[in-house]
């Protein structure tokens, strides 16, 4: 019996394991400096994203106007709204925490940048959600937002007054983008590890080859 030659699948698996071995992906220890409440806000953000997705799925399955005439639907909408508010609260605290840690240090710039992109994609997702409410608030936000978006030329393909188009952006493309970027962000955090504190002596030099 001969060993199989390494094919694309094997190479992909090995590259993945090399880049992110299981003990780094799901670690059981962390450096001793990872001991602050600020670290919890990243996980809280992801937790809120999970609740947003779950409640959003229920709203999507039942249809965009279900929540107007169903008490259960209205409650699910309330859950969706408040999980979004909590999501942004946790995300903003996480963002500012990472800023004041200068968490981009040590080859972690891409981690910071994916976090910023995730934040912007989340703002867009929430915005299209507000446009998809099919109530007075949605009418007003759409008529106000159109001028800014039209001024950039984007209104030609992103018509905030078209509730059908905005709903599709809200429940398909943008959530996929937020989810994918969030996963990439978390994987980068696991790969690079948590940024160490500033050294007391910042004038020290290190040796490089």
């Amino acid at each position: 019996m001969t060993a199989p030659t390494k094919n694309w699948t094997g190479a992909l698996r090995e590259a993945g394991l090399r880049s992110l071995p299981p003990e780094r992906l799901l670690p059981e220890t962390q450096p001793s400096y990872v001991a602050s409440w600020i670290y919890v806000f990243g996980a809280l953000t992801m937790a809120a994203l999970g609740i947003i997705t779950a409640t959003g799925l229920v709203l999507a399955v039942m249809g965009p106007t279900w929540w107007h005439h169903s008490a259960t639907g209205h409650f699910v909408n309330s859950l969706h709204l408040w999980s979004v508010e909590l999501f942004f609260f946790a995300m903003v605290v996480h963002l500012w925490g990472k800023f004041f840690m200068a968490a981009w240090r040590g080859n972690r710039a891409l981690t910071w940048m994916t976090g910023v992109v995730c934040f912007m994609a989340s703002v867009g997702t929430a915005f299209t959600g507000y446009l998809s409410q099919t109530n007075f608030d949605a009418q007003w936000i759409a008529t106000q937002a159109k001028d800014g978006i039209n001024s950039t030329g984007a209104g030609a393909v992103f018509n905030v007054l078209n509730v059908g188009q905005m709903l599709m952006w809200h429940i398909t493309l943008l959530p996929l983008a937020v989810g994918a970027i969030a996963v990439l962000h978390v994987l980068l955090v696991r790969k690079r590890g948590v940024v160490p504190p500033f050294a007391d002596d910042m004038t020290k030099t290190e040796v490089a080859k």
């Binding site: 400096y33 200068a102 240090r105 160490p196 050294a199 004038t203």
Partner: peptide
């Protein structure tokens, strides 16, 4: 030169359960 706003020294201190 070491750039404290870009670089870090690898952590060689203790760890804690997580």
């Amino acid at each position: 030169a070491f750039h404290p706003d870009r670089e870090v020294n690898p952590w060689a201190g203790p760890t804690r359960p997580y």
